[in-house]
Nucleic acid binder design. Sequence first.
DNA 1: CTGAAAGCGCTTACAG
DNA 2: CTGAAAGCGCTTACAG
Lengths: 359, 359
Amino acid sequence: MRKRVTIKDVAREAGVSIKTVSNVINDSGSMRPETRKRVQSVMDRMGYQLNVSARSLKTGRTKVIGIAVEEFRPFFLHLINAISEAAHAKGYGVIINTYGGRLPEFIQEASTLATDGWILHPTPKSRNGFIHSSWNKPTVQVGEYSSAVHFDNVAMSNRAAIEYVTGRFLDSGCRRVGAFGAPESLSSVIHAVRSGETTSQALLDQVSSMTEGAASLRFQGFCDAFVKRGMIPDWDLVCCDEVWATSKSFEMTCTMLESMTPPDAMVCFTDEIAIGVMHACASRGLRVPEDVQISGHDNIDEGRFTNPTLTTIDPSLREYANTAFDMLLERMQGYDGAPRFHMTGYTLVERDSTRFGRG
Amino acid sequence: MRKRVTIKDVAREAGVSIKTVSNVINDSGSMRPETRKRVQSVMDRMGYQLNVSARSLKTGRTKVIGIAVEEFRPFFLHLINAISEAAHAKGYGVIINTYGGRLPEFIQEASTLATDGWILHPTPKSRNGFIHSSWNKPTVQVGEYSSAVHFDNVAMSNRAAIEYVTGRFLDSGCRRVGAFGAPESLSSVIHAVRSGETTSQALLDQVSSMTEGAASLRFQGFCDAFVKRGMIPDWDLVCCDEVWATSKSFEMTCTMLESMTPPDAMVCFTDEIAIGVMHACASRGLRVPEDVQISGHDNIDEGRFTNPTLTTIDPSLREYANTAFDMLLERMQGYDGAPRFHMTGYTLVERDSTRFGRG
DNA sequence: CTGAAAGCGCTTACAG
DNA sequence: CTGAAAGCGCTTACAG
């Protein structure tokens, strides 16, 4: 191992001051172009490498942000790409991490990573872990909104988007419209309504009082579409599950289809759910969209290659990512106001798994 | 913005030396348990946060490795998870990055990220970019083997695995066995053989002389299976494509199926390819596996939810990841020997898209 | 425009 | 076992 070449060595070799070398590295200051070029060539020849730890120690900044998601799932890849693009455009480097199943270790690890700030996508379960830890870097939370959170927050229009697509199913004549991805916390109440122990109205009241959590808000949108049309959902067709994964939705849908008349439409709260539901329908010999129409949410690439292709909600990821990064940038630059909230728009992407207009 | 609390502030407040505080932080040295506990509580109360840049500047190490892949694709997620696990087990943090379509920028960015070493998964196209840049941190290359590379290298048994699965198709009676994912560099030669301008033997000779590149080695395995059985592949059924993505394989397979008798089996060089091929077959009314059998490679989760489920090669990712990290660890600790090479084993995972034994 | 010097917050010999 | 001091490699006022 050779001894490290420092700015001092370069200065001596090039016959200039340390300050001048620093200016060359940072493309700052003023000097004759020849000098700049000469110093640069000395650096190249000597194999000089900037020590970023030394720079960060001095400046107090790393110009790197971290992005943390629970695990790598299709939707997060789009999210990460969009945020990375926003960060790179402003000269920031990006590091990506997952915390799934090891939140305490991750929070510990994150403190040893040299970043100026973080964009976090917590899950309902991990939310409190972040809040109650010593996490104290500038942070913007994306996805899950929580009133307990003291971070800036960017979220999708969960409620409105699902209400819209549910409404489209109802308005095009579907009468057995189901939902997949409702909060697990409602599971027992829904069961109680099914068995007649409590009323639909009580359940609807509870649903309309929910104010946070993507699963809750999406389910609220689902119910609202019915209520606004003077209808009530068929609770037998509501699947409570917050894993939102293909395997889970496949299995649960298979079970559901064994015990009851199939729905004529399923509002799936994510595309991953929708893919599992579609697969389950196919394995039971149900045709999509003739027998069952299916919609997703997120507009992941995979939805373009299912058979049939998947109708979905596009959550305006670019707006989402840009807003999140801009908020973080302000925090990193010292802004110290109260937590802010931004909700993005959405678009319906109609593909072959639905036939809204062709009912 | 409050002034940062340093080790010095903590020492003064706790009435101990800086050295003692450092020992508490690093759980090192020897002191009375009470002292350790007292200093810890002072740190907590004052909100002390270790400055990792200062530590790294002093120690010359960050205890963080970077993992770089072209883009987030299903297979890479498994790879990243496996490597992360290996790194965490040895007390290393992990940062993850993609370089797709911006290799020079990434190489630049990587030098500003505080890491001790990198695990790179280059593509055929990016390989030279890494070699010819000023990339000089300890590095292990995974995936693509290249003789020009001066890094340690871990690769899959590309050739052997594909030869094995191709052989299974041939031995179970398939006579129109195609391949998807062959190197694009062979496209014109294959075309020349089809049109009679050159011979199959000349092509086979060229294929058997290839020594690197995953696409080349997998295609070599495909050809070897035929040759060892005294057979010759039907070149019409070979698709050259190194994108290895679902969308591309879907489109190319649709085109292929328009112009010729379908194959009775397709050896796909990745699961993502296989999913596109399967989708294309379905859209042409071909049944899998009755009309066309399909195999993949990589054992990504998605293959468990296709319809039918996908037969694939499992590339022993744990072995792959552990070996790569261990090699990197040795390099980071100063080992300076010649580049090393390790090839992992493989397993065939039989699912419903094939029927080797039931031909 | 350039140079000498201080200092970021740690760790680590070294002395006590 | 603990303390005082040097120094990692930069950047940044400051003086010339």
